[in-house]
Lab assay of single mutants.
Amino acid sequence: ARYHDEKKIIKDILKDKGFVVEVNTTFEDFVAIISSTKRSTTLDAGNIKLAFNSL
């Protein structure tokens, strides 16, 4: 259940930042955007990776 909650937070962060994940978006770029907000401090690193892979 935590993964789904965190995935929603991640999607909200991406929307707030106006960031669109494209086919050529690197995981490093994705993490940089997510990490640039205070909301990301509680996110699990594994869940961030899973969310990236699912987009």
Rank of each mutant, 00 (worst) to 15 (best):
D12M: 06
V21W: 09
T26Y: 04
G18C: 09
I13C: 00
I10F: 07
T41N: 15
I9L: 12
D5M: 14
G18K: 06
K8Y: 12
G18L: 00
T41Q: 14
I48M: 10
T41C: 09
D16W: 02
S36W: 00
A45G: 04
Y3W: 01
H4I: 14
G46H: 10
V31A: 12
K8Q: 13
T42G: 13
I9S: 05
I13E: 05
I33C: 09
I10H: 01
T41Y: 09
L55W: 13
L14K: 04
F27S: 10
S36G: 08
K17M: 06
E28A: 10
R39M: 12
F30W: 04
T25S: 04
Y3N: 03
T26W: 00
Y3F: 12
A32K: 12
F27L: 06
S54A: 11
A1Y: 10
R39D: 06
R2S: 09
K15I: 07
D16L: 06
A32F: 05
S54D: 15
K11E: 13
Y3R: 02
S35L: 09
K7P: 00
I34F: 03
K8H: 08
E22P: 00
H4C: 10
A51S: 04
S36Q: 13
A51D: 02
E22Y: 01
K11D: 15
I34W: 04
I10A: 00
N24P: 03
N53H: 13
S36M: 06
T42I: 06
F19T: 02
V23K: 15
D16Y: 05
K11C: 06
V23E: 15
A51T: 12
L50N: 03
K17I: 06
E22C: 09
K17Y: 09
F30C: 00
V31I: 08
F27E: 01
L43D: 04
T37M: 08
Y3P: 00
K15R: 11
N24L: 00
F19K: 01
S40D: 10
V21M: 03
A32P: 00
A45F: 14
V23Q: 15
F27I: 04
T26I: 03
L14I: 11
F30Y: 12
K38Q: 09
N24W: 03
I48T: 04
V20I: 05
G18D: 11
N47C: 11
I13A: 01
G46W: 08
R2C: 04
E28R: 06
A51Q: 06
Y3E: 04
S54G: 04
D12G: 08
I48C: 05
I33L: 10
A1N: 15
K15N: 10
I33M: 10
L50F: 04
T42F: 10
A1I: 13
Y3Q: 01
K49S: 05
I10L: 04
I13W: 05
K8I: 06
D44M: 02
S54I: 13
Y3K: 02
D12R: 10
S35Q: 13
R39K: 14
R39H: 12
Y3L: 04
A45I: 12
S35V: 01
D44E: 06
K7L: 15
A45V: 09
A51F: 15
K49A: 13
V23N: 15
K8N: 09
E28Y: 04
G46E: 12
L14R: 00
T25K: 03
T37A: 11
A45E: 13
D12W: 03
L43R: 04
S54C: 05
S35R: 14
S36L: 01
D29Q: 11
K49L: 09
F27N: 02
I48Q: 00
R2E: 02
I48D: 09
T41A: 11
G46I: 08
D44Y: 04
D29S: 12
G18M: 00
I10E: 00
A45K: 14
T42L: 10
L14W: 01
R39V: 13
D29P: 04
I33H: 08
V21S: 03
K8E: 11
D5V: 13
D12T: 07
N47M: 06
V23T: 15
A32Q: 13
L50S: 12
K7A: 14
D29W: 06
A32R: 13
K7S: 12
D16E: 12
S35E: 13
K49Y: 05
S35G: 12
T42Y: 14
V23Y: 14
I33E: 06
V31K: 14
K38T: 10
I10P: 11
T41R: 14
L14G: 01
S40F: 10
A51R: 00
D44T: 08
K17H: 06
K49E: 11
S36N: 15
D44W: 03
G46R: 13
F27M: 11
D5K: 15
N24S: 10
R2H: 08
K38E: 10
K7E: 14
I13V: 05
R39C: 09
D16R: 08
I10K: 01
G46K: 15
K17V: 07
A51W: 01
E22F: 03
A32M: 06
D12H: 08
E28S: 07
E22A: 08
I9C: 07
A32E: 14
F30R: 02
I48F: 05
G46Y: 11
F30G: 02
T42P: 07
K7Q: 07
K49I: 07
S40K: 09
V31Q: 15
S35N: 15
L55M: 04
G46P: 01
A1H: 15
R39G: 08
K49G: 04
D5Y: 14
N24T: 11
K7D: 04
T37K: 05
Y3S: 02
D29G: 03
S54N: 10
K11Q: 12
V31C: 14
Y3H: 01
V21Y: 12
F30L: 02
F27G: 01
L55V: 03
N47E: 03
A1L: 12
E28C: 08
L43T: 03
A45W: 12
S54Q: 11
K15E: 11
I34L: 15
I34E: 00
K7W: 14
E28I: 00
K15L: 07
S36V: 01
K7N: 08
S35D: 10
D44G: 06
L50A: 14
I13N: 00
A32H: 07
V21P: 05
V31L: 13
K15H: 09
I33W: 02
L50E: 13
L14S: 04
T25I: 02
Y3C: 02
D44A: 07
K49D: 02
I10D: 00
A32C: 05
E22T: 15
N24C: 03
F30S: 01
A51H: 11
D5Q: 15
T26G: 03
Y3G: 02
Y3M: 06
D16A: 08
R39T: 09
L50D: 11
R39A: 07
K49H: 09
H4D: 14
F52S: 11
D44H: 09
E22Q: 10
D5I: 15
F19L: 05
K7F: 15
D16F: 07
D5R: 14
D44C: 06
K17E: 10
S40H: 14
